[in-house]
Design a protein around this nucleic acid. Structure first.
Length: 161
DNA sequence: GCCAACGTTGGC
DNA sequence: GCCAACGTTGGC
């Protein structure tokens, strides 16, 4: 199975790229996803070795800031069983968990962040999910050619306005 | 702060 | 099963 590529959204006020890098080994379990479509990807599709764009959402500007590697595939999200967690789900039972997450490890910051505005301007990235209006999915598939194009953009100076 | 898009809930 | 109401996401 070939390595696949993903984009994970995070609000920097909640959990930023810097927070990930500060974790032991730059590694964290990606918990708290409570959307079924994203859950299916976490549980069934995202495998160790896959690569991840770390995207800052609900901030100025929204942008891709770094890359990470999946170090552990779909596992039950423990926060669903923790009554003290804001992500607690009393309806979910340990014998049939409803919510899943994966473990990721920070790889490196992009040479420079690539903003959503820039993604939208790039002719190669017109079809990228994150550029579509109303694309709220917090875990998104990324095509290999999109992965390459974003990295290429990050190695170029920002386009002057 | 605004509001469009989307997902979920719940009455019927 | 439909769909209106509601809450959330998230760019702008």
């Amino acid at each position: 199975m070939a390595r696949r590529y993903w984009l994970f959204k995070s609000e920097p006020g909640a959990f930023s790229w810097e927070d990930l890098v500060a974790c032991p080994e730059g590694t964290t379990f990606w918990d708290g996803v409570r959307n079924y479509q994203a859950r299916n990807l976490l549980r069934d599709e995202i495998k160790p070795g896959d690569r991840v764009f770390f995207y800052h959402s609900r901030c100025h500007p929204p942008e891709i800031v770094g890359t990470a590697t999946v170090t552990r595939g779909g596992a039950a999200d423990p926060t669903q069983f923790d009554p003290a967690s804001p992500y607690a789900d009393p309806a979910s039972k340990p014998e049939s968990p409803r919510w899943y997450g994966v473990e990721i490890r920070a790889d490196r910051a992009l040479k420079r962040p690539v903003s959503l505005a820039e993604l939208k301007q790039s002719s190669e990235l017109q079809g990228m999910m994150v550029t579509r209006r109303g694309a709220r999915l917090s875990i998104q598939p990324v095509r290999p050619e999109e992965w390459k194009a974003v990295l290429a953009l990050s190695r170029r100076p920002r386009t002057p306005p």
